[in-house]
Design a binder for these strands. Structure first.
Lengths: 208, 208
DNA sequence: TTTTGATTTAAACAAATGTTTAAATCAAAA
DNA sequence: TTTTGATTTAAACATTTGTTTAAATCAAAA
């Protein structure tokens, strides 16, 4: 039935299963026996390949974090993109990532408290937002009277918040449109949402 | 040292402790012995008063949900408030609630998956957004060319998302401003954020 | 074919976790 | 004072859970 997993290496099978369960249930809610069952392997193999539940979780969490934030930070530092171009690209990228994996934001933000220090070590830019090329472009634009003068962190919060929220609310969506083609409707909603978010952000930030 | 808890009834002491731990660690991450220790009571008393960990959690979760959404829905149905007034009031209320309890949004959205059906039963309006007075006002305004014609759910997602996001990111904030008066700085940020969010929403939604 | 090392398995282990028990304590009514 | 029922306690219970073990299996090198 699910042939594709058959030819994966044991390590990959474990990772894939762990990712699925961890994202659904979080670290504390995940039992290693659930992962083992999902991956069709013996429990002992988990420790053979990853030493402990915690180590396995860290591997999964780090990948999830990169998936959610890695490309975003890259875009925000891309010197070939304009201020406006970066906003469009970040929102488009975030939406694309979460479309592929709707559980990503709630998983990351639920587990974040237990891992802040480590995340900051891996992604110092998360804290050092002022050093991003995006922030410099914004500051220059403000000087020229092109962009509204607000702290860059407000922009991040608004941009991320508006992009993420529909995925946090997705469970309700699925109840509301159960029976109908909820997935397709959600997909359409997200496509619209992306346009609106960008339009709203640019409309507010760029002074005409 | 923490005298105030002394004169609470046992049931209240348990609830207060449970609330604190559940909000920090979620359902699966919470051990009833942690709650008992926090409340300074015998473990057996938990089951004496609440029958089970799950029942206790449900009591806490429902209160948290009411805290986060109850007033919001009330405002959105308040026929004495204008469309614009509702937006101002909702954002102000959400910010006030989360200022008092910054863990509320991440807790609720992390545990939401396991409780969607129950939530929808308690808050049918969450799904039935079109029947809110707010939605009717919006629809009328659209007809008159006063308000931008987008689906009401986009407005909710944007409004909630922008309000919630700073609190989801708060752990980073605390690392960034550790040592300095992080709480005070965050408080200032939130005050600014509230103004910006309202200004941006109204600027986008109201056609001049 | 034999040997070697990596991989996989079943079983067991110790610790933890939610729950229950039966007895002890307490406070108010009789 | 005695009695009654509610409250609290220490201890025990049965499961669950992450981890380890020692043996079995496998595949490739000698």
């Amino acid at each position: 039935m699910q042939a594709p997993t058959e030819d994966l290496s044991t390590e990959e099978k474990i990772k894939e299963a762990a990712r699925k369960i961890f994202l659904q249930k979080g670290f504390a809610g995940t039992k290693i026996r659930d992962i083992a069952e999902e991956a069709n392997i013996n429990i002992a193999l988990m420790n053979y390949y990853f030493r402990s539940k915690e180590k396995l979780f860290e591997a999964i969490f780090q990948e999830a974090l990169y998936e959610l934030l890695g490309k975003t930070l890259q875009i925000l530092n891309d010197t070939n993109l304009s201020f406006e171009g970066k906003i469009r690209a970040v929102v488009a990228n975030d939406m694309a990532v979460m479309r592929k994996n709707p559980l990503l934001p709630s998983f990351v933000f639920a587990e974040i408290h237990t891992h802040v220090e480590k995340i900051v070590k891996d992604f110092p830019q998360i804290i050092d937002t002022n050093n991003l090329h995006f922030a410099q472009q914004h500051a220059e634009g403000v000087q020229l009277g092109k962009y509204r003068n607000i702290h860059i962190d407000h922009i991040f919060s608004m941009m991320m918040g508006m992009s993420i929220q529909p995925f946090l609310e997705k469970p309700f969506w699925e109840v509301q449109y159960a029976g109908q083609d909820a997935e397709k409707l959600f997909e359409e909603f997200i496509a619209n949402h992306e346009k609106i978010v960008v339009e709203m952000l640019l409309g507010y930030l760029i002074i005409k």
